[in-house]
């Protein structure tokens, strides 16, 4: 590692506190690997700061203080990752993408309003409906169509689908959202449009 620390007799002493520091980090983080990494970061920071350490507090106290800041950093990173995984900015992705400008105007209203579909259940009984449905599925973009098919037709869990596709979960949600919008538009113009009953 660095050149100077080995020359400092306190170098070996710092190392001797490692097991204590790992226990301290583990108690806070509850993740062995992360605790090791965090202690490593703290010890490197300590080695750099060592020339300024005046020895007024004990070495262990000083090291623990450095570690405490590194633990807080790590906790913050965990919280950010979790938030990213679990949603909220999935929200921003899903509602703010440019492709939606085709479907919604600048005030956020539907450009073409979804209509009330009359007696949709009766469609299930008609062979012609399933032809239209299949055709509309086929018009979805390849990746979006695949994700939609796995999710809605095969009933797989989103988490598994995203894993297989190698994309994040919130990305998956956006693809599904987009596919649903496209599919309903296709059905409305190719099936429910034909049949469109009295005005609405």
């Amino acid at each position: 590692m660095a050149q100077t620390p080995a020359a400092d007799p306190r170098f070996a002493e710092i190392e001797s506190h490692r097991p204590y520091l790992v226990r301290y980090a583990l108690a806070q983080l509850r993740d062995a690997e992360l605790a090791q990494e965090t202690v490593q970061e703290a010890l490197l920071a300590a080695l750099e700061a060592l020339p300024g350490f005046d020895g007024r507090s004990s070495l262990r106290t000083w090291l623990t203080a450095i570690l405490r800041f590194k633990v807080i950093d790590a906790q913050r990173r965990i919280a950010t990752d979790r938030r990213r995984l679990e949603s909220t900015d999935g929200d921003e992705d899903g509602a703010d993408e440019a492709w939606q400008d085709e479907l919604f105007d600048e005030t956020g209203h539907w450009r073409v309003a979804p209509r009330t579909w009359s007696d949709p259940e009766s469609a299930f009984e008609q062979a012609r409906f399933w032809e239209v449905f299949e055709k509309c599925l086929g018009r979805l973009p390849p990746a979006g169509g695949r994700v939609f098919f796995k999710r809605e037709v095969l009933g797989e869990e989103t988490r598994a689908i995203c894993g297989a596709e190698g994309i994040t979960e919130s990305n998956c949600w956006v693809m599904l959202h987009r596919a649903r919008l496209a599919l309903r538009a296709c059905l409305e113009s190719n099936w429910f449009g034909e049949e469109a009953p009295r005005g609405g």
Binding site: R115, W117, P120, E134, R180, L183, L187
Partner: peptide, 17 residues
């Protein structure tokens, strides 16, 4: 209407499978 259409899509997809 869109909410109803989503329900319909879900059911149609399920039956399609």
């Amino acid at each position: 209407n869109y909410e109803g259409q989503l329900k319909f899509l879900r059911e149609a997809s399920r039956r399609f499978g």
